[in-house]
Write a protein that binds this DNA or RNA. Structure first.
Length: 347
DNA sequence: GACCCGTGGTA
DNA sequence: TTACCAAGGGT
């Protein structure tokens, strides 16, 4: 049997039942693919259900505000996915008469959709023979064929795409694509792959040469930066606070947070309240206390945030316009959400 | 082409 | 604890 036949035979017997698996509705497939970018099924599942319930069609999504969409996305990370999703929903709704494009070429032109996602949607929804190459595909092919080209190199990206395309079952591209990803997620896992009983065990190069643990190869990644965050949690006598939206480039774009004073090292109370940012924001008399003496280290993919939350009590402040009890309506990073949960407990 | 973008699970 | 990395894409 050829590669695709073995693979699809395995898939038909072992595939996972997922909410987006029994539909060709491009909106649902699109939504699931965006959510699952760099995200495990278990993590994205509840978000998918929540989105499809609240936004059953592209039009519903298009008519929501960006802040509402971000709030629903809160906790899933990589928030540009949500912003681009919303942007493209509006584009399809307003410029394309609500009709999702039906070819790879048109689909990949949409914001937030790259080669992988366009291939997935085109193959699953429209039976266009375009092979997906995601982390699973890199791993399965690198091991089975014993390929040592780094998967994050230009040469590797090209080589694996062409190989996947050559293996694709053109008569059922959507099934093939989902099969190879499911196989990678269930059998040919990153760690402790289930080589015993694997349908490819007789011809897998990595297994025969004991290279399973070494493949796929990846060029080394970049280092993590340290940053020092001081959040000013202002509380006025009439229970108001200050929230600001992150609109600059960088992390958490579009999300809300407390006023932030970033320093190049950990600072104490004296240093904090004598800083220009603090005085500009809170010129009046305040009572300040440190909420977490032990700094919280919030780890992102490319930076570690050493964070202190400072509780700043004041009778009133001209910037404090957010009623404390309405904070829950704002999309916030997990770092802030975790603080709020802790803070409510201690209040 | 290098770098950036979140969060959570696993060993 | 650290390191890896998961249905990638944008700039």
């Amino acid at each position: 049997m050829i590669f695709s036949e073995i693979l699809i035979f395995w898939y038909n017997k072992n595939k996972r039942e997922l909410p987006w698996r029994n539909t060709k509705n491009p909106y649902f497939i699109w939504l699931s693919e965006i959510m699952l970018q760099q995200t495990r099924v278990a993590q994205g599942m509840s978000y998918y259900l929540k989105f499809t319930e609240n936004y059953p069609t592209i039009s519903h999504l298009a008519n929501a505000s960006e802040t509402e969409v971000l709030k629903m996305w809160q906790g899933l990370g990589y928030y540009s996915r949500a912003r681009n999703l919303h942007h493209t929903a509006k584009y399809i709704s307003h410029e394309l008469n609500g009709k999702f494009p039906s070819t790879f070429k048109e689909i990949i032109a949409l914001k937030g959709i790259g080669d992988y996602t366009a291939s997935a949607i085109a193959s699953i929804c429209f039976d266009e023979p375009t092979a997906v190459v995601d982390g699973n595909v890199y791993r399965v092919l690198a091991r089975y064929f014993g390929i040592e080209t780094p998967i994050n190199s230009t040469a590797g990206i090209k080589e694996f795409k062409e190989l996947a395309q050559s293996l694709l079952d053109k008569t059922q591209p959507g099934t093939f694509n989902q099969a190879i990803m499911d196989f990678g997620a269930i059998v040919c896992k990153p760690q402790n792959p289930l080589c015993d009983g694997c349908p490819f065990s007789e011809s897998c190069v990595a297994l025969q040469r004991n290279l399973t643990k070494d493949l796929p190869l990846k060029e080394q990644k970049i280092k993590v930066k340290k940053r020092y965050f001081n959040y000013l949690v202002v509380i006025t006598d009439d229970d108001k606070t200050i929230l600001t939206q992150r609109n600059d480039k960088g992390i958490w774009q579009g999300l809300y947070q407390f006023p932030l004073i970033e320093t190049n090292k950990s600072v104490n109370e004296k240093e904090l309240i004598s800083s220009k940012e603090f005085i500009d924001l809170l010129p009046e008399e305040t009572t300040i206390s440190l909420f977490n003496p032990k700094e919280i280290i919030h780890k992102l993919s490319h930076q570690h945030l050493y964070t202190h939350f400072w509780i700043v009590e004041t009778s009133s402040n001209q910037h404090a316009k957010i009623l404390w009890k309405t904070i829950q309506n704002f999309p916030v990073p997990v770092l802030i959400a975790n603080f709020l949960a802790q803070f409510e407990l201690k209040k």
